[in-house]
Write a protein that binds this DNA or RNA. Sequence first.
RNA 1: GCCAGCGUAGCUCAGUUGGCAGAGCAACUGAUUUGUAAUCAGUAGGUCGUCGGUUCGAAUCCGUCCGCUGGCUCCA
Length: 648
Amino acid sequence: MVKWNDQSGRFIKGSAFLDVKKAFGWKNDVLMVQIADEAQPQVLELREAVDRDCVVEPLGFEDEKAREALRHTASHVLAQAVKRLFPGTRLGIGPAIEDGFYYDFDTEHRFSQEDLADIEKEMKRIVKQNLPITREIMSREEARRVFEEAGEPYKVELIDELPEGEQISIYRQGEFFDLCAGPHVPYTGYLKAFKLLSVAGAYWRGDENRPMLQRIYGTSFMDKEALDAHLARLEEIKRRDHRRLGRELGLFSIEEEGGPGLVYWHPKGAMVREVIENFWKEEHRKRGYEIVYTPHIAKLDLWKVSGHWDWYSQNMYSPMDVDDAKYLLKPMNCPFHILIYKGKTRSYRDLPIKYGELGTVYRYERSGVLHGMLRVRGFTQDDAHVFCRPDQLEEQLVEVLDLAEFMLKTFGYDEYYCMLSVRDPENKESYIGDDEIWEQAEAALENALKAKNLDYQVDVGEAKFYGPAIDINIKDTMGRMWQGPTIQADLNLPERFDIHYIGEDGQKHRPVMIHRTVLGAMERFIGGLIEHYAGAFPMWLSPVQIRVMPVSDKHSDYAKVVAEHLEKQGLRTECDLGQDKIGYKIRQAQLEKVPYMIIVGDKEKQAGNISVRHRSLGDLGPMGLDEFASKAKHEVSSKSLESVFAQS
RNA sequence: GCCAGCGUAGCUCAGUUGGCAGAGCAACUGAUUUGUAAUCAGUAGGUCGUCGGUUCGAAUCCGUCCGCUGGCUCCA
């Protein structure tokens, strides 16, 4: 019996939401409800009942909590199906994640792709049965007993680790039950569209000393259309994969004979990199950085002083013998920049000193984590270190944030999120440096973010032992997050290397050091750019900007004249003098994602002009060579992300 | 590193219960002289990732190593 006291949806204590739902004619796209007329809106499962007079609002898939409830239920249905098909399977955990859900299983059986299809079928059966999902509160002892009897050791472990006073609940649907805090949708029939995607190994609780479980990933949506759209997006991501585009576009390769995680930049990829590096250097010089170059190896002792030998040796390549000393390949550039700083006495008037380097470093990465250009063993960081007085710290941080923002905007990353990593105040002893310096540094970082008017999230305990940091995550065109600029205050190295400057008072003072990178690494950044642009680099970055193609042999000479003219003006131009028909040449240029195609035949030769085609705008018709050249040059110099012809 | 899957021509992929290694694209040669996403014909191209085993016979079955893919963990 539904009770409400007026048509506005105010319900009286005791109404069950499922009845409310029926009374209002809500469909199954209502997954949860929210009690709206409270100071703190409360989100509740449909299973529940109102315990007070209130106004309830429906929550659908677009609501994060409701979406998670649906996907969490999907993971339970997955687990139920697996337990039906593979009895004796022990359950790990099965949460909702950003784009779907997973469940971890422990069984002798090895899940295959075919199994996924069978499991999906069984899941559909469970959905069709439309089992009611119920919740039960248990004492710790009772829950332990239930899961011990059920032969679920992982669940027992979870129960044992639940904090004192935590309410322990289990959810049931048919014969299946699971330790779970919820929330869930009320019936398995609420699942409309789901798909199992992959199976992968995952250590129990992420700990490599513990058993390896099998994780099944899946996703679910409200309807088939939304699911299909998501699957299409996954396809699109695959299509944009930088490893595939990198090969197809002749940008880079990784050679089995040379070793994993080591990148070979082919001429076109190298061109993209060169353009970015030149831009980077120019921009840094403008902002008061001095560019330096430092060696690739250094004596082991240097790495002992820096602390890398103690803290980072797992990621460093083994020492090599040179004469009577041991040398190490550098995993970072910082100690080198400090040595340059240390090379002479610095005055407070000299500061800030800003050394920038596109420094190639080598880090040993475990073989399983290597991934194209995004995760490699040798890479070039766009590194820089700012040495400044403590009173300059904040203004220097603002400058770095400013540069980072400028760089991201230039490459078309318009959405980004800042994170401020600070130390764990409960655990001060695991950080180097005294309280006062930490507080100062953390305040400076936070003030810089505020000064730049940036939203940020504070991550307590995420700071490295040597100082707090700002990390900026960037979102690409596919909505994926990438690690972007990182800005790290370093309270450790100045100490270790005992660097100083002479202050106004004639005394030695300790400078503060900022370690920062705005692009990250050339490999990772350009790998990300390839996916961001789907291989179609904006004009200023395109390795080939223009391709001139004669309609037939008769027009080759004219084509060469045109190409030479453009080349002379600094536009990267190629001529396609092949015997193929013009349609074929265009197709080739399209596939190579060349921004502009210039077609010349009888008409153009006679008129002394050119026909222009843009890779995404198509045929732009005839125009004068000079007109085109000046527009093209403008597109390059402005680093425009779209064609100058896009608006007209 | 660990778990699972994969490795056949430059690329994308066929290859049945173990029985002579294939196609399309690319390359090369020739013909064609072309008007906005593929002209036609021909030629060449492979130690079937590696090493070992089983077998009369292995791309195929088994093992080893190398590499790749998806994850776990970490990070630029």
